[in-house]
Design a protein around this nucleic acid. Structure first.
Length: 153
DNA sequence: CTTATGACCGGAA
DNA sequence: TTTCCGGCCATAA
């Protein structure tokens, strides 16, 4: 592929990830892997983390909204790992604790293990739709030959 | 230029 | 149960 194609592809990837993250309801959480699956790249959960790492901080100055995506409009804190835990950043624990605090602020119970690791109960707060709500709307109007799968808790 | 390593995951051993 | 491995690709050294 052409070199110029790379950046364009990357932009699409970042956009898809950020939009998917924005669909996570308030007070719920999901995993990197699930976001990756929702955007069509189930084998790239790692790159989801890369996107969030690159997510700029929200500008406290409203007149200076340079970036479309930032921590003010993308609920990055609702994305945790598949084990239901907040992975400790390499850069120090402040990031993880900040994420835990952000989740608690919206009503999510975050427990802390003996090792200082933060965990969330997916049984209570997990959000794992088969497809994005925006896409699910399209499925609704399609043929209903597909039998509704039994869904139990 | 080449390696190594991540805000990761699922399956195999 | 645990550990290991391949895959993805942006960055750092």
């Amino acid at each position: 592929m052409a070199r110029g194609e790379r950046s364009e592809e990357a932009w699409a990837w970042y956009t898809a990830v950020y939009e998917a993250v924005q669909e996570i309801p308030h007070g719920r959480v999901t995993s990197y892997g699930h976001i990756a699956k929702l955007v069509g790249k189930p084998e790239c959960p790692r790159q989801v983390g890369v996107c969030l790492k690159h997510l700029p901080s929200a500008s406290s100055d409203p007149s200076k909204k340079s970036a479309t995506w930032h921590s003010g409009n993308v609920p990055w804190q609702r994305v945790i790992n598949a084990r239901g835990g907040i992975s400790p950043r390499q850069r120090g624990p402040s990031g993880a604790s900040r994420q835990a605090a952000a989740l608690r602020a919206e009503g999510v119970e975050v427990e802390q293990g003996a090792m200082g690791e933060f965990t969330v109960d997916f049984g209570k707060y997990g959000w794992f739709p088969d497809v994005l709500p925006s896409e699910a709307r399209l499925v609704e109007s399609s043929g209903d030959e597909d039998e509704e799968a039994a869904y139990h808790t």
